[in-house]
Design a protein around this nucleic acid. Structure first.
Ligand SMILES: [Mn+2]
Ligand SMILES: [Mn+2]
Ligand SMILES: [Mn+2]
Ligand SMILES: [Mn+2]
Lengths: 217, 217
DNA sequence: CTTAATTTTTAGTCTAGCCTAAAAATTAAT
DNA sequence: ATTAATTTTTAGGCTAGACTAAAAATTAAG
């Protein structure tokens, strides 16, 4: 159907276009580690295939067909991540690169059966929602930790940054999805937080607080 | 490491070079549905990478490194086939095309863990042996059915042709791996056989008999 | 409003992998 | 041993997807 390269561009545009009307050429190039000229070429191709709307010098956005396609790729990526963690004992910081390959395998039956085999999971190992075969997914109420106030309590339910280093940091601090979090103190000076992670105290910087999604109790 | 295309050529040469000193350009082209000129190009590339030995106008064979590589691809192919059948309820005639894609996924941990998850299977769904991570595999004693004589008894243990149509034929005749087979009669005229498949009688043509491996009791 | 900085596109190259058509080498047949 | 048929290689082209460098458009600054 679509080449691996096309799929990767679709995915990139999908993730960058968050509310935004158009995603710029440079943004795409930045995320994909390619040059702007390569992006221009591909945007024309995606527009030809009716996967993206491309406005020269302004940027691009996915068409409905493009969004649909993105959702299926993301569905596959996240289902494979669940598989790797649940069935093959990968840790959550090891799955992404392999899922980047597996998400391009073409077989409807494969992904349907994988979904069933995993018990139709709704979230991937990083707390991100898994679209169903129609592209629909559950939106959970969640707040970025750095928006919380002293005394707020909740559970860790998702991450903004899912990089290997951040995931390893969370492991080290015994934070995982579902962990109870309580805001003890906020430090105006450096915007850091004193929190409780399952009853034990921890200091976290603004950068950490900006990347944790909390579901309030 | 190696491109998908290179891997496919390596696999083709491996399967064609069975005892033969050299595999010809045309044989490879035939198996891969490409043209001879494309094969020549690739043979030079494989020779440069020390994966094949290439003798112009004569043909090619894999080097030890090439054989090692082929074994790993075949290992992955067959493990994925087992996964699809055992865990995702694919039938044995549905797995090959998906495995052709999955065999190119690059991750040592993935394949090690998959192997473990499947309980270190020794055979794939078509009775073919699964190489271990060193490229070693069990060679089973087996005889082509068309070599058997009246009265011989055994079990179906493998197939030469594993095409979808042949597999569906076997399903229809209730033959699967492990099925008991007995030679009742051999017809000189058309080289056909009367056999018993788990006690029930069946007529099979020479073409069928030439593609079934039997392990004698 | 004009100039400067930035972004984006165009033009031209490159490589991998494929192809066709022609040339060369090998093998088979007189 | 020639000649004919077959196989294989070479030569040249094509496409996808990347790149660099230059040109053009947009945006920001003065
Ligand atoms: Mn991921
Ligand atoms: Mn994820
Ligand atoms: Mn197969
Ligand atoms: Mn098989």
């Amino acid at each position: 159907m679509h080449s691996i390269s096309e799929e990767n561009y679709i995915k990139a545009i999908y993730h960058l276009q968050d509310g935004k009307a158009l995603v710029s050429t440079n943004e795409i190039a930045g995320r994909m580690n390619t040059k702007a000229s390569s992006v221009t070429d591909m945007l024309k191709k995606l527009a030809d295939k009716n996967l993206a709307e491309y406005v020269p010098y302004k940027g691009a956005k996915l068409t409905d067909k493009g969004v649909q396609c993105a959702n299926q790729i993301i569905r596959k990526h996240r289902l494979w991540e669940v598989f790797l963690v649940e069935k093959l004992d990968f840790s959550w910081d090891e799955v992404h690169d392999v899922a980047e390959q597996l998400e391009h395998i073409q077989s409807q039956k494969l992904i349907d059966q994988l979904d069933k085999h995993l018990g139709f999971p709704k979230k991937d190992p990083h707390g991100d929602p898994i679209p169903d075969s129609h592209g629909n997914y559950e939106k959970t109420n969640k707040t970025i930790l750095s928006k919380l106030k002293k005394g707020d309590k909740g559970t860790l339910i998702g991450l903004i940054d899912s990089s290997k280093n951040f995931l390893k940091y969370l492991d080290k601090q015994h934070m995982k999805l579902g962990t109870n979090i309580e805001i003890i103190e906020f430090e105006e000076f450096d915007l850091s937080y004193s929190i409780k992670v399952n009853e034990s105290p921890l200091q976290i910087s603004k950068q950490i607080a900006d990347n944790l999604y909390i579901k309030l109790k």
